[in-house]
Simulated assay, not measured.
Amino acid sequence: MGAASAIVLVLITIIFPPLGVWMIAGCGADLLINICLTLLGFFPGHLHAFYLEYIYYDRREQAKTGIPNYSRAPGVYSERVQSGGYGYGTVVQPTH
């Protein structure tokens, strides 16, 4: 995703947080949590959605520079968000 798509994602998330979460995490636990938080109040849904987007883009940048982060971000259940969209599905973790 380029800068334009990131801006569109942020604008969509401002309007309706679960849609932004769905766009980066897909249909799963993170989406369900965000829907519940949005129903509890608009602000908690936004916090959760922007946290997921931050983790997604941070991990994406780390993977681009060749320094992937293999530690798990707390409160994120989507493997796609955890990996920044890279290696989704069949990633073999390096052994050190």
Rank of each mutant, 00 (worst) to 15 (best):
L19G: 00
D30C: 12
M1R: 09
A49T: 09
V8I: 07
F16D: 06
L31P: 08
L11I: 12
L11D: 09
T65K: 12
R72Q: 04
K64S: 04
V8P: 00
P44T: 10
E79V: 10
Y57T: 00
V92H: 01
S5W: 13
A73I: 08
L47I: 13
G45A: 02
H48D: 13
I14Y: 03
Q82M: 08
E53W: 05
T95W: 06
C36P: 14
R80Y: 09
G85R: 10
Q93R: 05
G84V: 07
A63G: 00
A49P: 01
Y86H: 04
C27T: 12
V21H: 12
L47K: 13
W22I: 06
P74M: 02
G84Q: 04
V91H: 12
E61P: 10
V8M: 02
L39V: 15
L32V: 08
G45Q: 14
H48P: 06
Y51Q: 12
P17I: 04
G66A: 10
V81R: 14
T13H: 00
S71K: 07
R60S: 11
A25C: 01
T90R: 15
L47D: 09
N69C: 04
I55R: 15
S5E: 15
R59Q: 13
G41M: 05
I15F: 06
T90C: 13
V81L: 14
L37A: 11
G2Q: 08
Y77R: 11
Y56C: 08
D58N: 15
S5M: 14
I33T: 04
A29P: 01
N69H: 09
L19E: 05
I15H: 01
P18Q: 06
R80P: 05
G20P: 02
I24W: 02
L11E: 01
I15M: 03
G75D: 03
I24Y: 06
N69W: 07
R80F: 03
D58H: 15
M1I: 11
A6I: 02
R60Q: 15
E53S: 14
A49Y: 04
T38Y: 14
G26E: 09
G41C: 02
Q93S: 12
Q82L: 05
E53P: 03
R59C: 03
T65L: 14
A25H: 05
G28L: 02
I14S: 01
A29W: 06
R60N: 10
R60P: 01
A6W: 02
A29E: 14
I15K: 07
L40I: 13
S71M: 05
I15P: 00
E53Q: 11
L37N: 04
G87P: 03
H96C: 08
L40H: 12
C36L: 13
A4M: 11
L32N: 09
L9Q: 11
P68L: 01
Q82V: 03
T90P: 08
L9T: 08
L52E: 13
G45T: 08
V8E: 04
L9R: 14
V76H: 03
A73D: 14
A73S: 08
E53C: 04
I35W: 11
Y54T: 13
P74Y: 09
G87T: 06
A25W: 01
G28I: 01
Y51T: 12
P44S: 09
H46N: 13
R59P: 09
M1H: 14
V76K: 07
E61K: 15
W22R: 13
S78C: 06
G66P: 02
F42N: 12
V10S: 12
L32S: 14
G41Q: 05
P18A: 02
T13W: 03
